[in-house]
Amino acid sequence: MSAKTTILTLPEEELVHPGHRACAGCGLSILYRFGLKALGRDTILVVPPSCLTVLQGLYPIAATQLPCLNVTFASTAAAATGIIAALKVRGKEDITVAAWAGDGGTSDIGIQALSGACERGDNFIFICYDNEAYMNTGVQRSGTTPQGVITTTTPIHGKPQQKKDMPAIMAAHTISYVATGSAAYPLDVYDKIKKAKTIEGPKYIHLHTPCPPGWGFDTRYTVKVGRLAVETGLFDLYEIEHGVFRLTGASKKLLGKERKPVAAYFETQTRFRALTRARISAIQRQVDEKWAGYEA
């Protein structure tokens, strides 16, 4: 892999038009802008309904300068399969096919088609932007909503269940490349997507995506909140390349160091207001155990 991209070496060309329809402070808008720079012009996108559909705008406005097929939640990865197959038949295999879906479209309603495409070994990049609930429809719980989070379908007490570990599920498909990233570290995301483009077969990239209205924080804190998730060890940046796991970037730097307490992250967002001290302690213990595993 070449040297890490910096803000000075990042391509200047923008593939997302200014004036898109995302909310102020949207983590996705950072990721999408950097992500499309990494994917480049020779890309066909597949997008299910999600916040990204809203970001792209209402017909006849399109914030994306790339060809894009809008499909339904459950069909994203399969539609990508069809595009790949047709490009092969038409002798245009140098085009990148990227599906870009939310956490619901990936880990819940979209998981079957994604699993099928990965099992078949289809050559595409699937990017999940995980804002940890169904934000587009008004903050309802998803499979990747963390435990204890208040959403409109887990009111008062918060979500009882654990967050679904989607990258681990994808790694279990023995695909060549699984990576995580965060809107707070967009250059790291850029480099990971660039790397994914060089690898054959299915690639899965899971992006932690702070959402000011859904998580309950001020729009100016998107990057700060995203960083705290990493600095507390709750969301880890890593790659699983051909089955080999390694922490990357900001998470790698945490190895052997003292991490910030998880409570520091929770107190930045109103969605965690139902967490009791006991629950926070339990989550802290889980994180500590996970990191003890990394450091062992």
């Binding site: 097929l69 499909v71 069809g82 038949v89």
Partner: peptide, 10 residues
Amino acid sequence: SVCTGSSAVG
């Protein structure tokens, strides 16, 4: 869904 993607590419 596959047919939709493939037909969209021609």
